[in-house]
Structure formats: C-alpha cells, structure tokens
C-alpha cells in the first residue's frame, strides 16, 4: 500500500499554460481557482489538525497542573510544573501496574494470535482436505457478529473453565476473538505467495512443519507485521472484554479498566491532575510508537479495508 500523494508521482505529461483546451481567460480563471482552493483546503486542514492535536496537547499540559489550577484556568499553560501528578497516577492510582499487566496480556495474546492464526491460515490456504471450506467459513463468519452479543455465555464459559479474572484467561479470549480477521487476512496472503519455494524445500526433505516455520513465515513477514500491528492496537485498546471477564482483583486490571476507574475515582476526590497524568501515561507510548512507525501502522490498520 502506498500513501504517496499525487504530486509526488513523477511522469505526468508536461502541460504548457494556454494549451489548446484552455483559452487565455480560461487559464487565468483556472489558476485563480487553484489559488483560492489551495488557501481554502489549507484552512480546513489546519483547523482539523488543531481540533485533533489541541485536545491531546491539552491533556498533556494539564497533567502538569494542580487540580485547582485545572479548574480555575482550564486553558492556561502550567505555571509551575507539578510532576507529582505523574508519580501519584503511576503508584497510588496503580497505573504502573495496569501498564505492566497490559503489556503482558497484549504481548502474549498478539504473539499467540499471529502464531495460531498463521498456522490455521497456512493449512487452510495451501492444503486440500475435507472440511477445509467449512472450517474457513467458521473462522471468517466470526467477523460478522458483535462480541457484545455473546457476553453472557462467554462469562459462564470462562467461569466454568476457571480462567475468569485471570490474565491467561484474558489472553486466551483475546486470541480467540482475534482469530477471525487474522485467519481471513493471512489465508489470502498465503495464497498470493509462490508455491515453488515450499515445494523445493519439501523435495529436499524438509517436513511440513519445518517448511512452514523456516520458509513460509519469513516469506509472509509483510502480512504478519501488518496484521500484528492491527492486533496489538486492537487488543491494547480493548475495553469491553476486560470489563466483563476481568472485573475481580484490581491487581490484575489492564490500562483501560484502570483509566475508566480513575475517571470515576478522581471525580470524587477532585484529583484532576492525576486523571490527566493517567491519560497521558496511556496515550504517550502508543503515540510515540505510532510516530516512529507511522507508515507501517497506517498500512497495517487500513490493510483490512483495502483487501
């Protein structure tokens, strides 16, 4: 996928002013149209960029203000930087623990999703066997129904399995609900890869398993990275599943749960600085990763829609 703009595409035929299609006045008119439109588009683009950027910056600079200052001068810059907010949010509001929990859950569940998703997708894409189509549609069909629909039975399935309110339980649920899209995308990706390399490996005596891990996975890397990013962000931001399946011990909460709770608690305690510090803690790492890998992230998130 490319996100180049058209003006960066070379090779458009040179056109002289006053070409046959445009009379002299027509040309002048069109040029002014270009100018007006240019100013017009820039104005709208700048306004939207401010509308997106300012609230985020506002949350960041509010995290350095005292709660009284936030309420009396909601818009002002911090006069003296109050770093307490951050340490309070990190330790007293346990954002640090939630942060670590989230990293553990997302780390294992994304790795698991990519491993199991690619394994299933590879078999479904490359091998003919009875039930192949049925299994494929079972997986892909999962994309069509809303998770919220199965909330009640899922609550009891995880209770009966004894994995409710545990991090491994949450990891397994994340993997299971990420499989439909991962299998769908990776199956079509494996189909686009040439068969000859894998055949050569098999002829040379490599087992199917070895061929998959040593030949096919490296070849499928672009697809795995795209969908990996998609899953990391989706699972990092998951709110509904932990809310229902991980509502027990607060020491096992993930970041989204902690933040929602912080918003309620700080409302009672009036510790607004702590709330904004908590928001910043949740916001900054993701934004930092995004800015560094923005091309891959944009490609990964839009890959599904372009496929």
């Amino acid at each position: 996928m490319t996100t180049e703009t058209i003006d960066e595409v070379p090779g458009s035929a040179p056109r002289k002013p006053g070409s046959p299609a445009a009379s002299a006045t027509g040309w002048k008119w069109r040029r002014s149209e270009g100018g007006v439109l240019n100013a017009f588009s820039h104005a709208f683009l700048v306004i939207w960029a401010l509308m997106v950027g300012l609230p985020l910056l506002w949350a960041l600079w509010s995290s350095f203000k005292s709660s009284g200052d936030i309420l009396s001068h909601p818009m002002s810059f911090p006069t003296h930087f109050k770093f307490d907010n951050w340490s309070h949010a990190w330790t007293k509001a346990h954002m640090g623990r939630y942060f670590v929990n989230t990293i553990i859950v997302v780390g294992f569940s994304t790795a698991g999703t990519m491993l199991f998703g690619s394994m299933a997708a590879y078999v479904l894409a490359r091998f003919e066997f009875p039930l192949n189509r049925l299994i494929y549609f079972l997986f892909v069909g999962g994309m069509a129904f809303p998770v919220v629909m199965v909330l009640v039975p899922l609550f009891f399935v995880t209770t009966n399995l004894g994995i409710i309110n545990t991090l491994p339980g949450l990891i397994l649920v994340y993997i299971a609900y990420s499989l439909p899209f991962t299998v769908f995308f990776m199956t079509s990706f494996f189909r686009t890869l040439p068969t000859s390399v894998a055949e050569a490996a098999l002829v040379d005596g490599a087992s199917h398993t070895r061929t998959f891990f040593q030949i096919m996975v490296p070849m499928a890397r672009p697809g795995i990275i795209s969908i990996g990013i998609f899953n990391v962000l989706g699972q990092w931001n998951q709110y509904l599943l932990p809310l229902v399946l991980n509502q027990g011990d607060t020491s096992k909460w993930v970041l989204t749960q902690g933040l929602a709770d912080l918003a309620v608690q700080q409302g009672y305690q009036g510790d607004w600085g702590g709330l904004f510090a908590g928001l910043s803690i949740a916001m900054l790492p993701v934004l930092a990763v995004y800015i560094v890998f923005q091309r891959q992230v944009q490609a990964g998130l839009t890959a599904g829609a372009l496929k």
């Binding site: 997106v52 962000l233 931001n237 970041l255 989204t256 949740a282």
Partner: peptide, 8 residues
Amino acid sequence: FPQVLSVT
C-alpha cells in the same frame, strides 16, 4: 492520531 488511541 485518535485512531491509535484507545476509546477509553
């Protein structure tokens, strides 16, 4: 930006 932030 908002796309990479959680709904929370």
